[in-house]
């Protein structure tokens, strides 16, 4: 996957791992965040063994629609034999994930480096 960039999401390769970073994530950007996660889902369609870090550092707000799109991305990664790890999740977003029990299905890590290393170690 070549490095790509658009208004609200950036994709880059780090070895065998794709790092997807949202570039805006304030409350007023919610529709853009939803569109970005939708687009990310399309990028993941039919990709085998995709290892992706989703960097949420700038995301301050997420609705149930956003949580649903995160789940959709995780399902696509796992369905293709790959995985997706969330990195740099803000406390308020982590609280939502936890309250909705989604920390039972998502792996969440503090840094992109830690998440990348973990994904590189998958056989």
């Amino acid at each position: 996957m070549a490095q790509q960039s658009d208004e609200i999401i950036e994709l880059k390769n780090e070895g065998r791992v794709v790092i997807a970073s949202l570039t805006r994530g304030a409350f007023r950007d919610e529709n853009g965040v939803l569109a970005a996660l939708e687009k990310l889902g399309h990028v993941m369609d039919n990709r085998q063994n995709l290892r992706m870090v989703l960097d949420l550092e700038v995301v301050e707000y997420m609705s149930s629609a956003g949580l649903g799109r995160l789940v959709a991305c995780l399902k696509k990664a796992r369905a293709g034999g790959g995985d997706l790890i969330l990195a740099r999740v803000r406390p308020e977003i982590y609280e939502l994930l936890d309250l909705m029990k989604l920390t039972q299905i998502f792996t969440v890590m503090d840094t992109i480096e830690e998440a990348t290393k973990t994904l590189e170690q998958i056989a």
Partner: peptide, 21 residues
């Protein structure tokens, strides 16, 4: 019913649960 573990993979239906929280 989001209390059921098999519902964790649902892609929608969390809005009312968040409101109730």
């Amino acid at each position: 019913d989001l209390e059921a573990d098999e519902q964790l993979w649902q892609e929608s239906g969390r809005g009312i649960a968040l409101m109730c929280l």
